[in-house]
Design a binder for these strands. Structure first.
Lengths: 181, 181
DNA sequence: CCAATTAAGTTAGGAGGCTAACTATCAGCC
DNA sequence: GGCTGATAGTTAGCCTCCTAACTTAATTGG
């Protein structure tokens, strides 16, 4: 659980109170912001706890999913740099993720036939089996958490979340890794 | 930036495709879920980058804010255990946060007069000054990111986010640290 | 009144992020 | 054909979070 958040969000009345001391404070904006962080953290926790129980983490899961292509019955092969780019982490971080995954037998590093600088990362049978074991419950959890929203509410959420994400990445572009959306 | 996420979210059509392989996969639920994680991460990044520029982190900022009470003109005093409980981190993590904050002169540890097991953590003048320096821009960033939403949209967001958070913490209660609504 | 339990805080060790620096390889260009 | 620069991957060091074990102090109960 990566985010550290106030367990009990500031009450709205409290925000209004503080707003008197800080002219720049927009109470309803802060309220949305805090709820967004808190709910994002809760959602993250729901899947992360499941990953952890299966010996994975969000990062390792993302790597496995990138290599996984159920529809083709095949597995993709990517270089560490490609995986890092698609995952949104640095190449150094990807080295660590692949180290752990390879140690646990989920993926293999194979040399690239033409460019000896590059490696090809591929899922092993064990990695595929781990995903097949994990995914049903993973999707069940997501469906369960979101079951409280109607289809209309889901559309609304996606629309508003997209507006916020676009606003954030345009107004405050990520310093290094791409924040394009 | 704690969360690792796909840089480019899976397209909705792609989700529909995969859904054929996984009967339990609810495409619109996954779509909301992915957008929620992604937008939460973007929002987190916007303030975290600012904290970092001011020599703080989300965790240390939360501690300072818990000790800060602008309206009273006073600072609160809490024990590390209270701060950990309010922040939603373990006592061990709080020890580390207070270590760093004390090293940087933002807070002080003082012995509790009656119970020698306990400590009292208080803001220093320097800590207050750091917050006074940081908060205007902090609130400006939040207001700026949320400026793309109308007041009606903000109310909608808070309502829907609350539903999701409640659903998550009820259906999948946090394993150790409290997940109370 | 002293042993056992509980509680507060710290320490030790692990995982996963990051940046910066390093090594090996490839590509370009006189 | 051998510099020069760019690219792929790794390594080293730092930070923040975690769990588990430990130390010290307070409480409880025979």
């Amino acid at each position: 659980m990566p985010l550290l958040l106030l367990k009990d969000l500031p009450r709205y009345e409290c925000l209004l109170e503080v707003a008197q001391q800080f002219p720049g404070l927009d109470p309803s904006a802060c309220e949305v912001f805090l709820h967004l962080l808190r709910t994002g953290d809760e959602a993250f926790r729901v899947t992360e706890e499941h990953f952890h129980a299966k010996g994975l983490s969000q990062g390792r899961f993302t790597v496995l999913m990138l290599l996984y292509d159920k529809t083709c019955g095949e597995t993709h092969a990517f270089t560490p740099a490609q995986l890092a780019e698609m995952s949104g982490v640095t190449r150094a971080t990807m080295t660590g993720l692949i180290d752990t995954l390879e140690r646990d037998g989920m993926v293999t590093r194979r040399p690239h036939p033409e460019d000896r600088r590059q490696l090809s990362v591929e899922l092993t049978k064990k990695g595929i089996a781990r995903l097949d074991d994990l995914l049903p419950e993973h999707f069940r959890r997501i469906a369960s958490v979101m079951s409280v929203l109607s289809e209309t509410e889901r559309k609304t959420m996606v629309r508003l979340l997209s507006k916020i994400a676009a606003s954030a990445s345009e107004t405050f572009p990520a310093s290094v890794a791409g924040g394009g959306a």
